[in-house]
Design a protein around this nucleic acid. Structure first.
Lengths: 335, 335
DNA sequence: CTGTTAGCGCCTTCAG
DNA sequence: CTGAAGGCGCTAACAG
């Protein structure tokens, strides 16, 4: 495993097979004309010697890596791992591998990606970090040959895009409307911190006020898109405002955290408190009471992102986007 | 983004700064002696020109990629995504990136990894695919400079290892004992198909028979380690053998599938049926009734795997392993 | 159909 | 402290 065995190169194979390096290269890449006889002889020599092409050398000369970079904020969030699965499957079909960067929402890590995954390291880039600042994202996209961004609006020339057909703040608004219609008058809202895919809390309140659904700013809060933060924020919100009869979570993990917090505080769901999430991760349908949420075709989000990336990588300079639908799935937590 | 702009090379910087390429290289790598003045001048030129070193070129000459390959069977399984998170965090700290391969338990994909992630593509490899056949795994490990295997026994010279302190079949046995002690006499077992981390069903039955816990072969089944398979297998098992009062799932996803199937069939849990899982994913504690399962320090499994890999990559040829504990967490599904 | 020449961008070795 | 020559392993472009 660590012995200093000489690497077998193209030249070794060529010498052994009595041909030139070029011929071996042609055989490996199935390019150019090579007689059936030599082709076979070279093939045999390759397996006999156990030759394997050197990736970096090939990358250097072809200027192609067969790698695509994928940036996510949290691979342990089922929403993102499903997206990665979709990307990876499509990439694999085309002979590409995935270089994964999990930022953990850490700005230092986000910044470091600029040097870690640069243009020479990957052939294309998929970013699904809706909380990454423009100061980092735009230069990042600019420095790559091809890029796709998920759930974020960026200048069309910088990247293709996969996003919800409905605009910013759609979920929160629909949720609030749905709850109001069901008779709720004191609705809380937990916004996802720094998310570029959501409206601000102010915009949320303003829009609903226009529809005579009054939401008070003190009923709203922001937190990171993870379960623990949802739990804590839910607890705080319900302690400070026991009058709330419903809470909208920014995503499923947060909503589930809220549900658990409410249950731990002795609240019954949905009788004492209705909860709505977003993303429709597996857990949402499995938990009791099951979580009302917005279904997102998560796998398709990933696979389409990969497809749009390949389109760009193949030289299509036109802007392409894939819009997906989000549909409210009524379950037990907010019937 | 797609303009044919000339790549800026080391030589460009050298010319601009009025030094040789070698000096620029020294500045970049902080190696060798360079006067403070030239160093600064070169640095300035680098930022002025926006120079970035070409990864493949550097890889070719140094024979290092700063990449580690990570092979998992299913990134959407929270168990694996948590492991990947652990690996990725440690890798990042050392300036390494993760090349992810998600096999989806697909043998064709597993085989393709041999050529896709070869020795020249990564500096080290972490495999946590307990269902990959030895015919593929061993050559794979053999062809890499450094490797770590998770939850699988392999010849010590091939890789370092992270695994449960308890041997094969520990979970299933403990679960059965626990259930028997609680008075269950007809216990079903769902084995994970092709898993090298588990005993066979026969061994499971034999060992328990020795302890006078009678398990019938027809109460046992095998399935893939995913929720859907657990649901289906649970349904079949409960239909064919309604007499079962408890079922042991190979992992949490399968156990949760069984729980849902049982609930859908009108069984109450744990009154009509007790269920035990394994892994302790987030979902296990959140669901109602909460799932009795084995806690695994999943993040540490990943981070330790990365640490053991770096140890090997740094030339430590001794065999190292990290053993973790699995502890039964009693929850509501099997109190 | 096959070989020759050149060079990708960088770093190692050895002189100065 | 700095530079010149050479080569990592492979392929593009051109001969023959």
């Amino acid at each position: 495993m660590d012995q200093q065995r000489q690497r077998i190169t193209l030249v070794d194979v060529a010498r052994e097979a009595g041909v030139s390096a070029m011929t071996v290269s042609r055989v490996i890449n199935n390019t150019g004309r090579v007689s059936q006889a030599t082709r076979q002889r070279v093939r045999d020599t390759i397996v006999r010697l156990g030759y394997r092409p050197n990736r970096p050398a090939r990358m250097l000369v072809t200027n192609q890596t067969y790698l695509i970079g994928v940036i996510v904020p949290d691979i342990t969030n089922p929403y993102f791992s499903k997206i990665v699965q979709g990307i990876e499957n499509i990439a694999w079909e085309s002979g590409y591998s995935v270089l994964l960067a999990n930022t953990n929402e850490n700005p230092a890590r986000e910044e470091a990606i600029l040097s870690q995954i640069d243009e020479s390291a990957v052939d294309g880039l998929i970013v699904c970090s809706s909380r990454m600042s423009d100061d980092i994202l735009l230069p990042l996209l600019e420095s790559h040959r091809a890029a796709v961004v998920i759930n974020r609006k960026i200048p069309h020339h910088l990247a293709n895009c996969v996003r919800s057909r409905h605009g910013l703040g759609y979920r929160a608004n629909q949720s609030a409307r749905f709850l109001a219609q069901a008779g709720h008058e004191r609705i809380g809202y937990i916004h996802l911190k720094r998310s570029a895919a959501m409206d601000s809390i102010d915009a949320f309140i303003a829009r609903l006020a226009a529809d005579h659904i009054p939401i008070k700013p003190e009923w709203c809060a922001s937190c990171l898109p993870i379960w623990e933060a949802g739990y804590q924020t839910g607890q705080q919100l319900l302690t400070a405002h026991p009058e709330l009869t419903a809470i909208i979570g920014g995503n499923d993990l947060v909503a589930l955290g809220v549900m658990r917090a409410a249950l731990d505080m002795g609240r019954r769901i949905p009788d004492d408190l209705a909860v709505i999430g977003g993303d429709d991760i597996l857990l949402a349908s499995q938990i009791t009471p099951s979580l009302t949420t917005f279904h997102v075709p998560t796998y398709e989000v990933g696979s389409m992102a990969a497809r749009l990336l390949f389109q760009k990588m193949q030289g299509d300079t036109s802007y392409q986007e894939y819009l997906y639908d989000e549909t409210l799935i009524q379950r037990d937590s907010a019937p």
